[in-house]
């Protein structure tokens, strides 16, 4: 029996309906079923490859400061100012003292600038698949991420056939992802490409959202942007030893205009370099006492990534906005349960 696919398209800037209506929507339900299979496949793959899953910390005296313009949420912890996690990066690095390969399925809260409410890509509350590997370099991590994503796609296409059909998402769209190597370009090349599309882009900043969408529309499979300039990311992104000013990091961009799915790279881990990078990113090292204390005694070198669960779901499900892939979407500045 062939059914007519559900209507998934929304208008630009459209906000989620009220919670009850959103949860009853077959689109939401199909997206969440796909999401469920993504986490099952992730655990399956990483578990089979020797990774320990840890439960993520939710609050701490500090959190990831490297989130473009986003405000952190303060928590009163018995009279001390704590933060909700914007990402667990500092804990990921520290956890490598105990285990060499770890991952979290971690919730994050970032009070993003109001202008991001209508990008279709930002949620103030979202989940990341956070992976970190001691002693790894960027190349190893890129290979891991490609293999993981292929495994997830294979699993989801198998287990969520009905949901793909209901959403009218053609499984053929993922053939290039499964068959061809993910593309790769440097930040400098990405800037040139965005400018080639007559869109403004600074050479020493992150690729802006619109620019990312434009180059994302031009490919048939995910690709990596590597080598972001220092000054575009937080202090944990490792700086090249041979090319000062260039970061050993990457973003994974989905095809079809879905944009960034994942950020990662090699990390800074040496005490003196961490202090310098903290200052270069305007941070006060005193805030990071617990982390620097570990670093002074020896933090393992590592690389890893954080893969946005709702963004991957949106890409797989072919949805217009990332909020369609969240049961309780919280858009920047929009009051919602």
């Amino acid at each position: 029996m062939t059914e007519t696919p559900l209507r998934t398209t929304i208008s630009a800037g459209q906000l989620p309906p009220v919670t009850g209506e959103h949860l009853l929507s077959p689109v939401t339900q199909a997206a969440l079923r796909i999401q469920n299979n993504i986490t099952i496949a992730t655990r399956e793959y990483l578990g089979a490859h020797g990774f320990m899953e840890l439960t993520p910390p939710l609050i701490g005296p500090v959190t990831d400061p490297g989130c473009r313009g986003a405000k952190q949420v303060d928590v009163d912890f018995y009279g001390h100012k704590y933060k909700l996690m914007t990402s667990v990066i500092l804990y990921k690095q520290a956890s490598l003292l105990a285990f060499d390969k770890i991952f979290y399925v971690a919730p994050n809260v970032r009070l993003e600038p109001l202008e991001t409410a209508t990008t279709g890509r930002h949620l103030a509350e979202f989940t990341q698949i956070d992976v970190e590997v001691a002693g790894a370099g960027r190349e190893e991590i890129l290979d891991l991420l490609q293999a993981l994503l292929r495994h997830i796609v294979g699993h989801v296409l198998r287990e969520s056939k009905v949901n793909f059909a209901a959403l009218g998402r053609d499984p053929e769209a993922f053939e290039p992802l499964l068959r061809k190597e993910f593309g790769r370009m440097t930040h400098t090349e990405a800037v040139a490409r965005v400018r080639g599309l007559s869109h403004e882009q600074s050479t020493d900043a992150e690729i802006n959202w619109e620019g990312e969408r434009l180059i994302s529309e031009q490919t048939d499979r995910p690709f990596f942007i590597v080598d972001y300039p220092k000054g575009s990311r937080g202090f944990t992104d490792g700086e090249s030893r041979t090319e000062p000013g260039v970061l050993r990091n990457f973003d994974l961009i989905a095809p079809g205009g879905f944009g960034e799915l994942c950020s990662g790279g090699e990390r800074e881990f040496e005490y003196r370099r961490l202090i310098e990078r903290m200052r270069e990113t305007g941070e006060n090292p005193a805030k990071y006492a617990w982390y620097l204390d570990i670093a002074r005694k020896g933090l393992p070198s590592s690389a890893g990534f954080g893969l946005g669960l709702e963004r991957v779901t949106r890409y797989f499900a072919g949805l217009d906005a990332v909020w369609q892939a969240s049961a309780y979407p919280k858009l920047p500045g929009i009051v919602s349960p």
Binding site: R68, D204, A205, K230, G231, S232, E280, T281, G282
Partner: peptide, 9 residues
Amino acid sequence: QQIHLMRNN
């Protein structure tokens, strides 16, 4: 770098 980050963020 602090200025670059301000412009980026």
